[in-house]
């Protein structure tokens, strides 16, 4: 396995540059839904970027749009997705197919539905190697075995012959990661890769991802609802709400001093293992479905404890604020306690 020397983490040129991405779903006879609305972010080589949000935040749709995996009917995708300077959204389909898998790989939440249930793991992994790496027969099989071993699957020779249902959830997710890595991608997009797994298995998978990013110099986009996962893994974090980024910052800045009331509210509402017992939780009132349409005002306004009249007067802009970007008219003060 190739182990590149750790390059300087932050090269100036971004590997992935998402600019003003928007995704609109139109259903026949139904309302149009803007699932992703002007999302911009960059991923530099070797960087790990987190997209955090609850259901309906648009985080998964963003990743699917980047990979051009959304159905074409009833979906409009706008903006640009520059990968190495090429706009993925306008690339011919066959070139996109080459990039998918070879340069960008994706790992999904449910490993079972991402694997073909009637084909042994080994064949599925070698297939990828044969298609993108030009390996043949025995060489490909040996490479597949090595990959499985590398992602921590014990006894890979035997596992190669097994079908997906014979593997546990954690093992399946490892197999998927092995397939994603088969082509030494430069960018790995992981969409809730540990949500279906137990915590001890989750810890194994996250360690594995960390290690792989470090060893191969690939970039990682981690999509999750779990702030804890992001805190230990990502260099930069984008918090999404109702299709837009509401706050972006380095993880230390974001977790140390959340400025958007939504970020702060999320942090105050999850019980922390290391917090003194009896510390009260401060839930965010309402539910993620109680949103205001962004063109009328801030989508979070209906649930926001810091709401001003201006918040429902028009859409707040994503402003650059030194160490972060923030979409809020009345952010939390630095080091302010989150209001109960």
């Amino acid at each position: 396995m190739r182990v590149t020397d750790s390059e300087p983490l932050l090269r100036s040129e971004p590997l992935l540059d998402v600019r003003d991405l928007s995704v609109t779903f139109t259903r026949k006879g139904g309302p149009t839904v803007r699932a992703v609305d002007g999302v911009s972010f960059t991923v530099r080589p070797g960087e790990t970027v987190g997209l955090v949000g609850e259901s309906g935040s648009g985080k998964s749709v963003t990743s699917l749009a980047v990979m051009r995996l959304l159905p074409r009917r009833g979906v409009q995708v706008g903006g640009q997705v520059l990968f190495d300077g090429d706009d993925l959204l306008t690339l011919p389909r066959d070139r996109m197919r080459d990039i998918r898998g070879r340069d960008i790989a994706m790992v999904f939440q449910d490993p079972m539905s991402s694997l073909n249930p009637v084909v042994p793991i080994g064949i599925q992994v070698t297939e990828v190697l044969e298609r993108h790496q030009d390996l043949k027969g025995e060489t490909a099989r040996a490479a597949a075995e090595e990959l499985l071993f590398r992602v921590g699957i014990p006894d890979p020779r035997r596992r190669l012959k097994e079908y997906p249902h014979q593997l546990s959830g954690g093992m399946r997710q490892r197999a998927l990661i092995a397939m994603a890595l088969a082509c030494k991608p430069r960018l790995l997009i992981a969409d809730e890769p540990t949500t279906a797994l137990d915590v001890t298995i989750q810890a194994q998978i996250i360690e594995l991802l960390k290690e792989l990013v470090q060893d191969t110099g690939a970039s990682l986009v981690m999509i999750t609802h779990d702030l804890g996962v992001v805190a230990g893994l990502c260099d930069t974090v984008h918090v999404m709400y109702s299709g837009r980024i509401v706050e972006s910052a380095g993880r230390r800045e974001l977790f140390g001093e959340p400025r958007h009331p939504y970020t702060g509210g999320l942090l105050a509402s999850v019980p922390r293992l290391d917090a003194p017992r009896g510390a009260p939780l401060h839930p965010i009132p309402g539910s993620p479905t109680d949103v205001l349409s962004w063109h009328k005002g801030c989508a979070f306004a209906p649930r926001c404890p810091n709401r001003l009249d201006a918040c429902i007067g028009g859409p707040p802009r994503l402003e650059s604020l030194g160490d972060r970007s923030l979409r809020c008219l009345n952010p939390l003060e630095q080091n302010e306690e989150v209001p109960a």
Partner: peptide, 10 residues
């Protein structure tokens, strides 16, 4: 194994 939403701790 439980992740804690605090980079300093993590």
């Amino acid at each position: 194994a439980v992740p804690i939403p605090d980079p300093v701790v993590e």
